[in-house]
Design a protein around this nucleic acid. Structure first.
Lengths: 338, 338
DNA sequence: CTGAAAGCGCTTACAG
DNA sequence: CTGAAAGCGCTTACAG
């Protein structure tokens, strides 16, 4: 099948390419009759403009890039869902890249997206990202940039986040309210901002309620996953026999811990209460069901794209744009593990 | 920051655009000296070719499209993971679209990808897709097409699948081998090929082993999810009191069923054995851990892209290409629910 | 209301 | 070894 071009239509109709182009785009200076004729012919031939040529002329690709640490993760796949749905509504396509929590890969992927001339970039930072010169370059090239969930405070751009510190504070306070006196924390890696903030929220809640902070009660779950939760729980049982509550950085880690306790005959929440984070749908299905903090992934994706869209629009019109940080609400969810 | 173009470099060096272009692409008919000069200048100016122009000339976008029914699904996100990793290795970017199991959306998205001139399309069909004219169009336009997991037999293109019928047969046989005499099946929707095949495997296994097939033991889980499993299990308990085994279309449905039985004090596997499908990582974490069939999502994604890549390569060279169907191995995983 | 012409930035067949 | 020229398919300022 041969490609149908404007030239093709013009020849068939015996008019100029210019007029065909204008007619299809409803320019006011083309007669109704010609427009009708052109549109009919275009439809008949199934004409589709060649985006490559359009891109070259308009300097827009109608495509945005998305870099995410891990696709296979309920929270992140929810974000993806929100983003691509919203993007499609606005006529944008989304290229998805996975950094695998690697700084090196992330940097390479930023370069890739720049060279592909995406109209905007959305990113959730890898755990191992410290240096942010690659993101500064995006800013320099004036490509609209938005960070979500795992952000850096060092870069001035729009952001969509939750208030991790407050949410963690509320989660820890809930444990205290239900009578816990000695509360451990399974935290994430040392670098990511959200891991830090959740830790700080936990610490602050203890201090505000007359419980002493004890660093030996803090365990690191590097990958914040199920196995990390298992290992941390086992270690905790070896180290301490007086802990009556745990606040974990993710539901996955909490579920790992619960499986250890179930196995050892330690009763949750009678012997030890557990509080997760993120409200993964499985959390309501396990025994006991997990108390947690609801983290709105789909919503975050949706809001993120909307914000990026505004910025892309402003940029196209050469208008100034004021980066905004949008903080989404979280919700404490009480179930049977506390 | 101004864009750096070939023209820019040519002017700086006082040579022609042609020569600059050739030098950068290491054409043999450019002197070593000139090449070195050009490359140095290009590096200095951080020259990046304008992909829009390159696309227009080469008629390639180095981008592939992926349409998937649901992103938020462990199996599919594993497939995505395999695809984007492999694609990146080969210098391709992946545009991901979600059909939400809707035929209408799927059709629109195919159009979108065609108009974006992706170099190839990979798709797992929506449940509601019966008509396949949109896929026929892809073939007509000679865009390399690959289907995986949820495929249609009506279209001649490369495919990556598992042998659903055999896998379901093995799963059901495993229930029979462990002593089950009256085995129910929670099947998927009526249309998708894999739902049909798993059902047929179940039925065949019963018949081959002297158990009578009873259609009243077959329940439909339209969305094959956790809630469907809960509802089917509740209905089953109302309808029958002699069922001693269930084979479910997905682990999610199985876990829903287990949660119902746990709640009602029905012992798994003593009173009733349960067999899932897909080996979701959570399946080993629940109580009792779930016996299931391992379905290699990541592998499927990887193999799928590799196969598509071969086809794209052949097409570029105008070589003939013979579509291939690749069947991936599944594995029976015995745990504590059977 | 219509169209010739320039140009987006690149690639490549061809001439010298 | 180098470069002028044509062309990919479109858009748009300009002339008539």
């Amino acid at each position: 099948m041969k490609e149908v071009t404007l030239k093709q239509i013009a020849e068939n109709l015996g008019i100029s390419i210019t007029t065909v182009s204008k007619a299809l785009k409803d320019y006011p200076d083309v007669s109704k009759k010609t427009k009708a004729l052109v549109k009919k012919e275009a439809k008949k031939l199934h004409y589709k403009p060649n985006v490559f040529a359009v891109n070259l002329r308009t300097k827009e690709s109608k495509t945005v890039g998305l870099i995410i640490p891990e696709v296979v993760h309920h929270f992140f796949s929810s974000v993806i869902n929100g983003i691509i749905e919203q993007a499609e509504k606005k006529g944008y396509l989304v290229i998805i890249l996975q950094s695998n929590e690697s700084y090196k890969l992330e940097k390479k992927q930023i370069d890739l997206l720049i060279s592909k001339r995406v109209d905007g970039i959305m990113i959730s930072l890898a755990n191992k990202t410290v240096d942010i010169s690659h993101l500064k370059r995006v800013k320099e090239l004036e490509i609209p940039l938005l960070m979500f969930d795992k952000i850096s405070k060092m870069i001035d751009c729009s952001k969509v986040v939750i208030n991790d510190r407050e949410a963690a504070y509320a989660a820890t306070k809930h444990l205290i309210d239900t009578g816990c006196k000695r509360i451990a924390h399974f935290r994430g890696a040392l670098l990511p901002q959200n891991s830090i903030d959740r830790f700080l929220g936990y610490k602050k809640a203890l201090e505000d309620h007359g419980l002493k902070y004890d660093s030996s009660l803090v365990y690191i779950c590097e990958n914040v996953d199920y196995n990390d939760g298992i290992n941390a729980a086992k270690q905790l049982l070896e180290d301490h026999d007086d802990v009556d509550g745990i606040f974990t950085i993710t539901d996955l880690a909490a579920i790992g811990a619960i499986s250890v306790f179930n196995e050892k005959g330690i009763r949750v929440p009678d012997d030890i209460s557990i509080m997760g984070f993120s409200n993964w749908f499985v959390s309501s299905a396990i025994t006991p069901s997990l108390s947690t903090v609801d983290q709105p992934g789909y919503e975050m994706g949706k809001v993120a794209f909307k914000q990026l869209y505004k910025e892309m629009k402003a940029r196209r019109k050469h208008e100034d744009f004021e980066p905004r940080t949008i903080v989404l609400e979280t919700k404490l969810i009480k179930r049977n593990s506390t």
